[in-house]
Design a protein around this nucleic acid. Structure first.
Lengths: 137, 137
DNA sequence: CAGTATCCTTGCGGATACTG
DNA sequence: CAGTATCCGCAAGGATACTG
């Protein structure tokens, strides 16, 4: 895929961005990039059906609150399914929907690329910072 | 690419998420999903080199401030190049770096998918909301 | 034209404590 | 166990005015 093909192809992006700017789409994108979503989607993708605490244990640093919020968000977006067994003590399991899986498929290349280029990012950042520290001159 | 291949592949995601949680990577991902970044990257991708005001004109609703901030962010991440001609009146042009182009390549499939599935998102959201309006019962 | 500077609101996300 | 409830700091992002 060369530069021109990309540009042709990315007209779709253009169309998507133009009309209905404050629609669902932008929200979904924002959700996908938010603090814990990718981690949750990935964890559920890899391990399948998991309970609340199991997800939490597999993700470093997430609080109960944020995990719940993230899961609700993903559920609302149709990316995660919530099975409440309505037992006592409570038992709830989460799993990816097909849509969630599809999202994961699209996120993986992006994320892989980001991870693989972390050094270039750091480098660029250092350049920028040094250029801007001393009045840019 | 089937489910299993995805899961294998997405170990990369896992690794990337684990160590160095608050590193550059997560920031880049967040930036990519932030309010105006995708629009700017796409605009520069499609139209090539543009001046500040030209970008602004092609993007609906962005303020001068947010455009500047977004551009700085992208410049700092090494995704956008800034050419200041140091003239009076000022003349500054922006263009994508190769890295910026590479990001765009990874964003397009994701965004295309989101746009193409907007209806499914809306649907899921309505389901969710109606299920939760009346006490879920 | 291409920004700064300033002010302000909103809401994300963390910490902690509590409950059916 | 799987959540709520509450409080809080901070930073994103918008509106507006000003400047070299």
């Amino acid at each position: 895929m060369n530069r021109d093909e990309i540009l042709q192809y990315s007209q779709t992006v253009c169309d998507g961005l133009r009309d209905d700017d404050d629609g669902v789409r932008r929200e979904v994108l924002a959700h996908a990039g938010s603090r814990w979503s990718l981690g949750v989607v990935h964890t559920l993708g890899v391990y399948g059906r998991l309970r609340h605490a199991e997800i939490g244990r597999r993700m470093h640093g997430v609080t109960q609150r944020m995990l719940t919020l993230t899961l609700r968000q993903l559920e609302r977006d149709g990316l995660v399914l919530r099975h409440d067994f309505e037992e006592v003590p409570p038992r709830v399991e989460y799993e990816l929907t097909d849509m969630g899986m599809e999202l994961l498929v699209r996120m993986v290349p992006l994320w892989t690329w980001i991870v693989g280029n972390a050094d270039r990012f750091r480098e660029a950042r250092q350049d920028f910072d040094s250029r801007h520290r001393h009045t840019g001159a």
